[in-house]
Design a protein around this nucleic acid. Structure first.
Length: 294
DNA sequence: ACCCAGGTCATCA
DNA sequence: TGATGACCTGGG
């Protein structure tokens, strides 16, 4: 077990964990439903489970859960069984990645719920993170089951079968614009069994891409995000404007098509390309790196 | 008024 | 295949 001094005290779970930082993990663009409720403390909900996490340096307190749920769900969700020091060492073979991994040394790639991740990244297209969060939140508030946590009203992300009757008009309220059609297509295809979203973890990366591309509004970038952040496909290298920009600037040194950027990433980092992507994305976006600027 | 934001789709060569 | 616009919406 990689987490140390791991024990239960007064209903809370305490642990010492290396290479884990709440801000870096929750603000690195991979998830949209974790919110800071106090300094050093985040509150989140996934698959109907609520979790409050407080961080003081490398020590963590987990509240709102029980040991069984923590071990069976959250440990995998937060990827706490993985040795990130080893991953960082493995991919930091040149100065750029060394710098990026030092900057985001507390990032962990979450294993999120597949359906929620799919809808969230459909919404993310040609959009900004602040508004993506707002839309995902109102989608949950409108259609998801309410869960109370210490007087705070949270909402689970609505499951496909719970919203099978949803209409375009219903979606007007969440202000997602033209993406409403895409969400409806996803709901329909998942409910009809045309797309087997719950099986993407068992599929290969290539099979997963093929499956996800059946949905309108899902292109290569969204598919890669779903596979990396919820499908456990760490070879996935989602190429958005930031990753394109930073990969070109640091490595390829010229304008490159997304498909070729992915090819480069595969040759450079192979099965760890997804981790590399996340360190680069966080580094580039937090520092607002422009094209050509490093 | 215009541009942009974690892209994708439709259309045309 | 590859290039080009259009696209809801909210904020700067």
């Amino acid at each position: 077990m990689l987490i140390k001094d791991y024990y239960l005290a007064q209903g809370d779970i305490h642990a010492k964990i290396d290479n884990f930082d709440l801000i870096q993990t929750f603000e690195c663009g991979q998830c949209f439903r974790w919110n800071k409720i106090r300094e050093g403390t985040y509150l989140g909900i996934s698959k109907g489970n609520v979790l409050e996490i407080e961080q003081i340096k490398d020590r963590f307190v987990f509240r709102g859960t029980d040991m069984k749920t923590f071990e069976n769900y959250w440990m995998d969700y937060l990827d706490l069984k993985r040795d990130y020091a080893q991953i960082i060492e493995k991919i930091s073979v040149e100065p750029n990645m060394t710098k990026a991994t030092e900057y985001g040394s507390g990032i962990r790639i979450l294993l999120q719920e597949e359906w929620e991740t799919l809808i969230s990244f459909i919404i993310s297209a040609n959009n900004n993170i602040k508004r993506i969060k707002k839309i995902v939140e109102s989608f949950s508030n409108l259609f998801g089951r309410e869960i109370d946590y210490k007087g705070i009203k949270l909402h689970a992300f609505p499951k496909p079968d719970e919203i099978s009757e949803i209409t375009c008009g219903d979606l007007g309220e969440i202000r997602c614009g033209y993406r409403a059609d895409y969400i409806l297509d996803a709901v329909k295809k998942v409910n009809d069994g045309v797309v087997n979203i719950s099986k993407i973890r068992e599929m290969s990366y290539e099979e997963g891409v093929k499956e996800l591309l059946k949905i309108k509004g899902v292109g290569p970038k969204v598919a890669d995000c779903v596979l990396l952040y919820s499908g456990g496909k760490h070879e996935s290298y989602p190429v958005d404007v930031w990753v394109k920009r930073v990969t070109e600037a640091l490595y390829i040194k010229k304008e490159t098509k997304p498909a070729d950027i992915k090819k480069f990433a595969d040759e450079m980092w192979g099965g760890d390309a997804g981790f590399a992507q996340q360190y680069l994305f966080y580094y580039a976006r937090e520092n607002q790196l422009e094209a050509g600027e490093v």
